[in-house]
Write a protein that binds this DNA or RNA. Sequence first.
DNA 1: GCCACCGGTGGC
DNA 2: GCCACCGGTGGC
Length: 221
Amino acid sequence: MEGKPNRSDAIGNKTSLSKKTSKRVWDSIAAYTVQCEKCSKWRFIPTKEKYEEIRERLAEQPFFCETAREWHLDLSCDDEPDVVRDGSWRWAIDKPSIPQCPPGWQRILRIRAKGGTKFADVYYVTPSSKRLRSMMEVQSYLNEHPELPGLTASQFSFQIPSPLEENYVRKRHARSVTLHDMSDTVMPVNPTSWVVSDQKRDSHLVGEEGSTSYVEAPAQS
DNA sequence: GCCACCGGTGGC
DNA sequence: GCCACCGGTGGC
């Protein structure tokens, strides 16, 4: 809400969320955005691959609006932001320095529903469409597939982003009753965030602090 | 029967 | 307290 002026670079890119009904794997991500180090405006990154590339190197290679000229001709800090925190999107703060996904693999991020015990899940899909949920599984897979050249576990990361919205994830000792019967429950902290939750699916989370971020599509069932 | 999603917990 | 890991299961 309070547009804090920071020099963070957030990345986001706009993944088409077209209603493709094929049963291929989908991120629950609508867009990837990066924040310009200079003007702080958020810029869409056109592809997930580009986003992952920028994210990996963001610490050494800050992002500027001019960087986006690679896909957005003549873009400059004078142009309107591609996206603003107006509440119509849910944002996730990405972790820095996540290695680029190996070619032929996919790194999938699934944002969980609000009120659960975890914000998101990361998994990798192998070239043979196997789904790997942890480093242990990655390591075993690599061991079983010596034909895959030059792959090491260090090229994988299961770090999940953080929700900007407070209380998106249920606190561990919150009473389980709150989810089912909130009518006469006094919220222990941050009542405002529950107000936000009243607007259902369109709450949002925002990246900050030089991190990359995702924008999740309004959850449409 | 499969698999996407969620919860729980052990280890740090 | 956090999070990596994995088991369970509901919905398809």
